[in-house]
Amino acid sequence: MTGAGTDALLEVEGLAVEFATAQGWARVVDDVSFTIGHGETLGLLGESGCGKSVTSLAVMGLLPPRSSRIAAGSIRLAGRELRGLSESQLSDVRGNLVSMIFQEPMTSLDPAFRVGEQISSVLRRHRGTSRSGARERAVELLDLVGIPDAAQRVDDYPHTFSGGMRQRVMIAIALACEPDLLIADEPTTALDVTVQKQILELLADLQDRLGMGVLFVTHDMGVISQISDRVVVMYAGQVVEQASTEEVFWHPQHPYTEGLLACLPAEHGRERLRGIPGLVPGPLDLPGGCRFHPRCHHARAGLCDVTPPGLDEVHSGHRARCLLARDLELRGIS
């Protein structure tokens, strides 16, 4: 497990994010910490509403300024503190040292501009590349991400591309300046399994070539198992488990992780999926004690509903936010 220090590319420590509501400030990300090393892929996993995307937007400095705030914590990229930078300073970092692939490429790409222009604008902004040089590099990038006939397609508009090809264009934009860190927020959502496999293989290949650190945000356990070196599991705004991918899948230490794994179909396809009852609580409706206890069939009355658990090391390099972690025998993948 990569630790905090000079070898870490990204260090997020004690991050807390709040959003303004009619009832006051609501904390949607609470005391989140993790690191990513050079060339490492960290999977950020959890159901919708767990705080994964808000965490990634906080790292990018893209939280809405008037309705949200970072209430606590530190975000360091290669040792440089990003929290507190001005918008001008952040704009020098975004798209240059750290880039992001967003969930929905059709809404992230500007329909009024050709894809080549959208790639070129990043190069001209951060590298000072000439117009002709940026266009030439845009063609190279489209070819790199597997767009056929890149020299012709560079002048096409986003609506002429399929969903998978638009996602490839988004990856080309994100990689234009060869960033140290790539944040991929649900990059395979709404893609069919064949295209999904192609995108994952593309990202893995590009990471090997460029040596990037990758923060891969998803709710898909199958994707996480394929692409991540380590996994951070989030629930209701908190990290509930953190370990290597192999440890999380084979030896989960939190009942929520066990529930997520139970949602995976077995290879023989005959066992009924168990699922997790209930819903993720909203930031204004958090239960007392452990936030997962109302949905947890291991919960003990008088303990789990009263005492908030810490994120403790259960085994070497394996942390879990569960009061019963050392007493439970949880089921991993079979």
Rank of each mutant, 00 (worst) to 15 (best):
R291H: 15
I75S: 08
R319P: 10
L82K: 04
S244Q: 02
G211F: 07
M106E: 05
R27S: 14
V145F: 06
Y235I: 00
E87T: 04
L203I: 15
L45G: 00
G95D: 03
G51Y: 13
Q253H: 15
T107H: 02
R80G: 05
L63T: 03
L215G: 01
H219K: 07
F292L: 14
S162G: 11
E247P: 00
A262T: 12
T2V: 15
G310F: 02
A190H: 00
L191K: 01
A236E: 03
S67F: 04
L330I: 04
L200Y: 10
A22I: 07
R153H: 13
P105S: 13
G302Y: 07
M234W: 05
A78T: 02
E201I: 00
H219D: 09
Q226P: 03
P265A: 12
G302L: 12
G5A: 10
P148M: 12
L45F: 11
P308M: 05
W25M: 10
I119E: 08
V195K: 08
E104W: 04
L44W: 02
A301I: 10
D220S: 05
A266Y: 12
K52G: 01
L286S: 05
L123A: 08
E246P: 07
R69P: 09
A22P: 03
D7P: 06
T107F: 01
A134C: 01
T129W: 09
L328V: 08
L9F: 06
S67T: 15
A134F: 09
L330A: 01
L97C: 05
S162V: 14
L323D: 07
R321I: 11
A8L: 12
L142P: 08
V28C: 13
W250G: 14
S88F: 04
G289S: 13
G3L: 12
L77I: 08
S108A: 15
R166L: 08
R272V: 09
I224F: 01
G237F: 09
P265E: 14
M212N: 11
G116A: 10
I36V: 15
P252D: 03
L328A: 06
I173F: 00
G275W: 05
G259C: 13
V59M: 03
G278Y: 09
R124C: 04
L42P: 01
L215D: 01
A190I: 09
R131Q: 13
G84T: 06
D305K: 01
S132Q: 15
P294D: 02
A172I: 13
A138F: 12
F34P: 07
L44R: 06
R135W: 09
V233Y: 05
V122I: 14
A299E: 03
L57K: 01
C290T: 10
D155F: 11
H298L: 10
H126L: 04
G310W: 00
V139H: 07
D31P: 08
L303V: 11
L141D: 07
G73V: 12
Q196Y: 04
L215I: 09
W25G: 05
E117T: 03
R295K: 11
L303W: 00
R272G: 04
G79D: 14
F102M: 15
Q198I: 08
E87H: 08
L175N: 05
V59K: 00
L264S: 00
G3Q: 13
H219M: 09
G43H: 03
T257D: 15
P277G: 07
A4K: 10
A151I: 02
A325T: 02
S130L: 07
